[in-house]
């Protein structure tokens, strides 16, 4: 299989922070807003360099979303930063009316998404955010897989008009995508060609999918691995082309099965190209405290879970 090398683990949120600083330098209309989590969101460099364009709202996320929506009137490009939990559920109606329905150019940037937030536990481990955001008309939903891709995605959304939800995480995670690779919103990335099963993964789970692919290869199974960094709009063409070749699908995401990437792909397949699907995702459950790797294991999102799902779905194909 195509080899991917971890260039040194880094947190995806730091990719966001670095890109935000670059955007601050290159685009005077970029404004950053934060709800008392500047350090966690890696927004300190932007805040220190561009104090006039950094808006600290305090612990008041609803007001932050409203202010961001208002800033677009006058040509500003606001990037809001807080945890995924406070970026979505807490402010769903504000996003729905003032951002999505009003079609405002707000970039909602959400860190600490998913189980890998770790020890803080279920109150902070949002596993429903992709579903909530993808259901909103006008909303683009992006979940990059590593530091480099998060950085590239952050740069890309600044020049992409309209509401965007950008989701990333807390832990240090393998950084394996080439630095400086342009990020094309809505375009799935083929990471490994295969003919036996298509593995569509998003976010942190892309690395796990690659590790699973290697294990499957050792068993003589050729898995196609595709990074779906943009969950909405979904790259239907790339997904259907892969499934026409492999005839079965595994999806992998650090999210609830309901409403996640797997749900989007299953919908596409039942409409266009019916095929068996196994979903590696959290099954209707809240998370809990623990180390990221312990949680992924407990909730069935580990590498062996992807391998098992692949074997199961290949068996269903026959």
């Amino acid at each position: 299989m195509t080899e991917y090398i971890n260039q040194g683990s880094k947190d995806t949120r730091s990719g966001f922070g670095e890109a935000l600083l670059e955007l601050g330098k290159s685009n005077p209309n970029v404004i950053a807003l934060c709800a008392d989590l500047t350090g966690s969101l890696k927004m300190e460099a932007f805040a220190a360099t561009f104090p006039d364009r950094f808006i600290q709202v305090g612990i008041a996320e609803a007001n932050m979303i409203g202010i961001a929506a208002g800033l677009t009137i006058g040509g500003k490009i606001p990037f809001t930063g807080t945890f995924a939990n406070f970026s979505t559920g807490r402010v769903y109606d504000q996003i729905r009316q003032s951002v999505a329905y009003s079609n405002k150019n707000v970039k909602i940037c959400a860190s600490h998404a998913g189980l890998t937030l770790g020890e803080d536990g279920a109150t902070h481990q949002n596993l429903e955010d992709i579903g909530m955001m993808k259901m909103l008309p006008n909303m683009t939903v992006i979940n990059p897989c590593d530091f480099n891709q998060t950085k590239a995605a952050t740069i890309a959304i600044a020049s992409y008009p309209g509401p965007v939800y950008l989701r990333f995480g807390r832990p240090k995670w393998p950084n394996f995508m080439p630095a400086g690779q342009p990020f094309v919103i809505g375009k799935a990335l083929l990471l490994n060609e295969g003919s036996d099963v298509s593995i569509f993964a998003t976010g942190h789970m892309v690395w796990n999918a690659l590790l699973a692919c290697k294990i499957l290869e050792d068993q003589g199974i050729l898995a196609e691995v595709i990074d779906i960094h943009t969950i909405k709009p979904l790259d239907n063409e790339a997904i259907l082309a892969s499934v026409r070749k492999t005839g079965c699908v595994v999806t992998a995401e650090e999210h609830m099965r309901n409403g996640g990437l797997g749900d989007s792909i299953a919908q596409l397949l039942v409409r266009e190209q019916p095929a068996p699907v196994e979903m590696v995702a959290v099954n209707d459950s809240f998370g809990e405290s623990g180390k990221p790797e312990e949680l992924l294991k407990k909730f069935g999102l580990d590498v062996p879970d992807i391998v098992a799902a692949a074997l199961k779905v290949i068996a269903r194909k026959q």
Partner: peptide
């Protein structure tokens, strides 16, 4: 700006003022 769901206009106005 769309409105109807209450309580959002003052925040929006602050954003526009900024």
């Amino acid at each position: 700006m769309s409105s109807g769901s209450l309580g959002q206009g003052l925040s929006v106005s602050i954003g526009a003022a900024l």
